[in-house]
Design a protein around this nucleic acid. Structure first.
Ligand SMILES: [Zn+2]
Length: 466
DNA sequence: CGCCTTTGACCTGCGC
DNA sequence: GCGCAGGTCAAAGGCG
């Protein structure tokens, strides 16, 4: 209990360095808690750590609303400040809270020289008891506040997800207009959804990516929203609207490999046959699923925790790299299509390369918003770049220009079978941490600045957890 | 008991 | 057609 309170005071002293007596002990413990150092980056470290410091990092990370740092940090700071002042007003004894029993007892005994040691002991015990009661009460308050912050965080994350999706839809609308014009020129050259047909597909438009997850081979190609009868029968779990937009997953079971609708997610990533007669937004979404975001970060941990829950489903030795590549899929929701690959860099084993693919089809905890937003934004941007360049390749000039202010290195690989954005966070992570609040409140409507925001938050998240 | 990891087998696309 | 490489599945076992 004393630990909790002490840590709470640390966070306060960290925020309000005008603390008087407890400052020394605060500073010492500050070093013991590495998370506190990250406070400017991730609010919930200070919010939850006083409670969860002994629970483990995983639970902490799952709750870290890295993405909405500024929003919540402001709120939480105010709350804690109020508590702090209130406590000071009521209990000036509390300034020595984290020092408590040992110091109090020793001071008393040395000064009074044992004349009334029993009385002093009783008094000390009473004080301790009072402090313990007070601690309990404060813990309860902390818990309440924590719950409140969690609620707000969840609401915020849900809203942000919604916003991201709206933005993507809006952008897709614009893209579709262009695509329709292009498609009108392309359609005569391809018919029907003959998936096995030889593609001879050029690098032209990722929009030719497969959308067969909703229209398996042989299904009528002209339906926008309705799944084919075959697909409908295979679908066991009703998917949300988001899911229908972004997920080709069924129930996680492969029904038939030759027509497995999910296998196109990663397994058929080179299969870019596209039915031009299919709805363009479907093609866009399929393309976005294939867009990858690769994050390079230095980490001794086997995997950076990005706030999501992952389940490992495979591991392979990749050619040219002595380190195995691990495959994970998101398990936060049934049928979430998001997958990631984790592999150490062959040249520098301390660098962890995490590649994300797909968009989550479920609400995310705040800590997961950064990476999820990054993935979604990258997919959108890649698509946008392909549209603007018109040849399926991302315009490489767009991205570096937007990313450099965020002091991370981002590159786009157009030569890969699928568009990939690589974020290199191995150079100046700290700069990212302190730039993030500035970019956090960028007005998101310009696409460029939105990317900057999302990638910056991702960088901070990866650094924090890595 | 449920969830997770491990790991060999399998599938698919691609190059020769 | 064959082999290779990437990706995925699913049974078996471990763990809390
Ligand atoms: Zn997910």
């Amino acid at each position: 209990m004393g630990k909790r309170c002490g840590l709470a005071l640390h966070s306060l002293s960290n925020l309000f360095p005008d603390n008087t007596s407890s400052s020394s002990s605060s500073s010492t413990r500050l070093n013991q808690n590495p998370n506190m150092f990250h406070f400017p980056v991730s609010l919930p470290c200070s919010r939850d750590d006083p409670h969860d410091s002994g629970i483990g990092t995983s639970s902490d990370e799952n709750r870290l609303p890295v993405d909405e740092l500024d929003f919540f940090s402001a709120a939480t700071v105010n709350v804690k400040k109020e508590n702090f002042h209130a406590d000071c007003a009521r209990l000036d004894v509390n300034t020595g809270l984290n020092l408590l029993t040992a110091n109090a007892g020793s001071d008393q005994s040395t000064v009074d020289d044992g004349v009334s040691s029993d009385v002093d002991d009783k008094r000390v015990k009473n004080e301790v008891a009072q402090l313990q009661v007070e601690l309990k009460r404060m813990n309860a308050e902390n818990q309440k506040l924590k719950d409140m912050v969690n609620d707000v965080s969840n609401n915020y994350s849900a809203l942000q997800m919604h916003l991201v999706n709206l933005m993507q839809q809006h952008q897709r609308h614009e893209i579709n207009e262009v695509k329709e014009q292009e498609a009108s020129l392309i359609v005569p050259r391809q018919f029907m959804d003959l998936r096995p047909s030889g593609i001879a597909e050029t690098d032209h438009e990722p929009s030719h990516s497969s959308s067969e997850e909703r229209t398996p081979s042989g299904s009528p190609p002209n339906n926008v929203q309705v799944t084919s009868p075959k697909d409908y029968l295979k679908t066991k779990n009703p998917v949300s609207q988001l899911d229908q937009e972004s997920s080709s997953f069924r129930d996680g079971k492969r029904i038939g490999r030759e027509e497995s609708p999910e296998s196109e997610n990663l397994g058929r990533n080179k299969l870019q046959k596209m039915n031009p007669s299919k709805p363009i937004d479907q093609a866009t979404e399929a393309t976005m699923r294939k867009a990858r975001v690769s994050v390079r970060a230095r980490s001794e941990a086997p995997m950076i925790s990005d706030g999501c829950q992952w389940r490992k489903y495979g591991q392979k030795m990749a050619k040219g790299n002595p380190c195995p590549r691990a495959y994970y899929r998101c398990t936060m929701a049934v049928g979430c299509p998001v997958r990631k690959q984790v592999q150490r860099c062959a040249e520098d084993r301390t660098i962890l390369i995490t590649t994300y693919e797909g968009n989550h089809n479920h609400p995310l905890p705040p800590a997961a918003m950064a990476m999820a937003s990054t993935t979604a934004s990258a997919a959108t941007m890649l698509l946008s770049g392909s549209m603007h360049s018109g040849d399926g390749m991302m315009n490489p000039n767009l991205f570096p220009r937007t990313m450099l202010p965020c002091s991370s290195m981002a590159t786009i690989s157009a030569s890969a079978p699928f568009p990939t954005v690589t974020l290199d966070l191995t150079h100046s992570p700290n700069a990212l941490q302190f730039q993030r609040p500035n970019t956090q409140f960028h007005v998101p409507f310009p696409v460029v600045s939105r990317y900057c925001v999302f990638f910056t938050t991702t960088a901070a998240s990866a650094i924090h957890t890595g």
